[in-house]
Nucleic acid binder design. Structure first.
Length: 782
DNA sequence: TGCAACGGCGCC
DNA sequence: AAAGGGCGCCGTTGCA
């Protein structure tokens, strides 16, 4: 007879935790939440500062279902009709809540959510303050899910913080008194827009139709409960007459030009690009004051940053993205639009306070925020493409591909697709019977692979020229499909989107993680789905040669010299490394190699230099000997020796690693010299420390280059444009007649930025190159 | 036919 | 014992 697991703890506690059903361990010991899930829960409670003894913990169902399969409590497969047992269990929990009236009940998981509120989908409702028997209910993702997918943990931590705050009183927060205005006449619309002129803060949001490529409506929120929505399109036609539409858009354009209004948006890049493209709004002149997505991403880059997630953290509004879609008529879209703006307004105000608490508000304002407009212009401009050259390269590669494919077929005897990992593995490890080569996949599992490394290894060992051919075919495929055939804009330019912090892709507002965790920019295809990532264009001549400056211009490439190595030297207070980088006239990596081999710098070969470049990189970022040995092609012991040499030469590097570890263990927050503060949520361990070790110098460097863009952008002389940011470099174009001296002066003035790190000023020198296409860039001669 | 997961690969 | 961090895009595959 299965044992019932009774609730545990103090029923008079202010905070209750209700789970789904006991698991194996719970059943054995007759206590709730004591197995793996219990450990997870305890850890989070500890982190949040809730004593388990100050809670009452129970489950909806008190007996363990066979195989932990909760579905047995439903009569049908669709999980719609609860059995009598489940209904009784719902009743029991509700009666208990009614009798004891805790200040708040945390519903852990979908079944608890259902039992207390009859709602579904914990991932939607988590963090929303709901009600049961007059008591506050906060749905939270269940610890079991955190065990399976660790990335759910942060939301549980944040939600339990909210639960703790709400447990102080039994009262619900005051309800929102929403005042949303829409469905106005033309005259009312014009006058409403003019009323907006007097507002200090306005949150705005557009709803678009990808299908029509149109802005459907625009909403303006002027407090956390007041908003107006102005429709433009509905159901494939304009809402207004042509004259009215022109007049309204003109009014909106004027509104956005008012400098004293502080504009707020969630992911302003998206809205501003549309507003500029469709309505001719002058992005440069909009006084954007706060971008909630970018701000949130500054501190919490690991978390989702969609509006619904922010809403659950910074407001008391319940989840609202479940409103009916287009079937609900125009009012639904407009209400939704209004809600988005008031929520954005409230989140902005709360985020502001939080950034201030984290002492990173200034960083947000001076760095991330100011970057937004500069980046929008880069995205809108794009780069000119040499169409003739592109066509020739396409044809040549296509030809090469066909020849190589035919040869492959004739050797193999059937149509083997080198782009298919499945077919390749069968070919290598079954047909040819070669011993499998392994690698670690994204989940850190050892898996059999047929990647380029494996092909090269096998070719070396067994001399199989066919593998070289396969590598060639893959290269050509990659070049053609990813780069040469990237979709151009209607104006034949290649454009991309730069992402500062997160991006929501789909039109239902479903959250998609985006942006980098390190403060770098990322690049991808733009909001229209055209273009591609322009930060990973192959370095060889072939592809880069199709990128050309506009007529009358030349490309200027400005890159920060050994930026990350310098940052590490300063961050680690590694005097010798700092001195070598700042004061050694010889090549830095050759110098280190020469020290190791105890011979002159001149005698160092290129391959020796490359080896030590890898060693420095590996040692700085806590790469192990195995991986290093693999990268530079030497036995593990040799790699160990090289690492030890470097650590002995620059002993402070290891101290710096320890420092990062100690800071992370204390606060989970790392602060960079530029004032960027990030909270870490990862599982404690070496991976987390390695992440921290990579994060600080990486973000420092990208923040410096971005600061350069911010400083240069408003001061660009006529005809000068910033085209790309590639982590530690920027690509610009300038009029061809610009004197080299002028270029050098400008670049050094705006881009070489002294930064104080550990009481010393670090200035990363900039190398400037110039050229008529991106492949042929030569050092700028002054 | 559309979608998500995955392997593979380009860059810093 | 062994361990690199950070991105985005393409094609294939398997599932709905």
């Amino acid at each position: 007879m299965p044992q019932l697991v009774q609730g545990e703890g103090n029923r008079n506690a202010k905070i209750w935790l209700i789970g789904e059903a006991p698991g194996e361990q719970e059943e054995k010991q007759g206590r709730p939440f004591i197995g793996g899930a219990g450990k997870v829960l305890d850890g989070i409670l500890h982190e949040v500062g809730i004593q388990r003894s100050d809670t009452y913990i129970d489950n909806v169902i008190q007996r363990r279902p066979p195989e932990n399969n909760f579905n047995i409590f439903y009569k049908d497969k669709g999980k719609k009709t609860p059995t009598d047992e489940l209904l009784a269990a719902h009743q029991r929990v509700r009666e208990l809540i009614k009798a004891y009236k805790p200040n708040i009940v945390v519903a852990l998981g979908n079944e608890a959510l259902r039992a207390l509120t009859e709602k579904n989908q914990i991932t939607h409702w988590r963090g929303s303050l709901l009600e049961c028997e007059g008591v506050k209910v906060l749905p939270v993702i269940q610890p079991t899910m955190v065990m399976k997918q660790y990335e759910h943990r942060p939301s549980v931590v944040l939600d339990l913080h909210k639960a703790k705050a709400q447990s102080l009183s039994p009262y619900f927060p005051p309800p929102y008194k929403d005042n949303f205005r829409f469905n106005l006449s033309f005259e009312e619309t014009i006058s409403v827009i003019r009323e907006l002129h007097e507002k200090e803060y306005i949150a705005f949001d557009i709803e678009t139709s990808q299908e029509l490529g149109q802005i459907m409506c625009i909403g303006f929120g002027t407090s956390k409960e007041e908003a107006v929505c102005i429709p433009i399109f509905y159901s494939k036609t304009s809402w207004w007459t042509a004259e009215e539409e022109i007049a309204i858009i003109k009014e909106i354009r004027e509104l956005f030009a008012i400098q004293k209004i502080k504009f707020i948006a969630q992911n302003a890049q998206f809205d501003l690009v549309y507003l500029a493209d469709k309505w001719g709004i002058d992005v440069d002149r909009v006084n954007l004051w706060m971008d909630t997505m970018i701000a949130f991403h500054c501190v919490y880059p690991e978390l989702k940053k969609g509006l619904s997630f922010l809403t659950s953290i910074y407001t008391n509004r319940p989840y609202y993205k479940n409103m009916p879609g287009s079937g609900g008529g125009p009012d639904v879209l407009w209400t939704y639009n209004c809600l988005d703006t008031v929520v954005t307004y409230e989140c902005a105000m709360e985020l502001r306070k939080e950034l201030d608490e984290f002492k990173t508000l200034r960083f947000y304002e001076e760095n991330s925020h100011k970057l937004i407009k500069a980046i929008i212009q880069m995205q809108r401009r794009g780069i000119k493409i040499d169409l003739d050259r592109k066509k020739k390269i396409d044809e040549a590669l296509q030809m090469d591909l066909e020849v190589a494919t035919l040869r492959l077929q004739s050797v193999v005897g059937y149509t083997l697709n080198p782009a298919s990992p499945k077919q390749m593995k069968e070919f290598l490890y079954e047909d040819l019977g070669l011993p499998p080569v392994y690698k670690k996949n994204a989940l850190k599992q050892q898996v059999i692979t047929a990647d380029e490394d494996a092909l090269e290894t096998l070719d070396e060992r067994y001399n199989l020229p066919i593998l070289k051919l396969i590598i060639d075919i893959r290269h050509i495929n990659k070049l053609l499909s990813t780069y040469i055939r990237a979709e151009l804009e209607p104006d034949d330019r290649l454009k991309c989107a730069f992402i500062i912090g997160g991006n929501m892709k789909d039109e239902f507002g479903e959250e998609k993680k985006g942006g980098t965790e390190t403060g770098r920019l990322s690049s991808r295809s733009n909001v229209y789905g055209r273009g591609t990532n322009l930060q990973n264009i192959p370095r060889g001549d072939l592809v880069r040669s199709i990128f050309i400056p506009d007529p009358g211009c030349v490309f200027i490439n400005a890159d920060l010299n050994k930026a990350e190595a310098r940052a590490v030297a300063y961050l680690a207070r590694e005097e010798r490394l700092r001195n070598m980088l700042d004061n050694t006239k010889e090549d830095f990596y050759k110098f280190i190699a020469a020290t190791f081999f105890k011979k002159g710098v001149a005698a160092i070969t290129d391959s020796e230099r490359q080896t030590f470049k890898s060693v420095v990189h590996a040692a700085n970022y806590m790469v192990g000997e195995t991986k290093l040995g693999k990268t530079i092609g030497c036995p593990k012991a040799r790699a160990r020796e090289l690492l030890d040499f470097y650590y002995a030469l620059c002993p402070s590097i290891k101290c710096w690693h320890m420092e990062i570890k100690s800071t992370l263990s204390k606060s989970k927050i790392l602060r960079t010299p530029l004032g960027r503060a990030r909270m870490f949520f990862g599982r404690w361990g070496d991976d987390l420390i390695r992440e921290g070790v990579a994060y600080v110098p990486q973000s420092t460097v990208s923040d410096i280059i971005n600061l350069g863009i911010i400083r240069a952008y408003p001061n660009l002389p006529p005809g000068w444009e910033i085209l790309l940011q590639i982590h530690d470099a920027i690509l610009m174009q300038v009029p061809i007649e610009t004197p080299p001296m002028h270029i050098q002066k400008f670049v050094k003035h705006y881009l070489e930025i002294p930064v104080e790190i550990n009481d010393k000023m670090m200035t990363i020198p900039i190398d400037i190159k110039v050229g008529m296409n991106w492949a042929k860039m030569a050092k700028l001669e002054v």
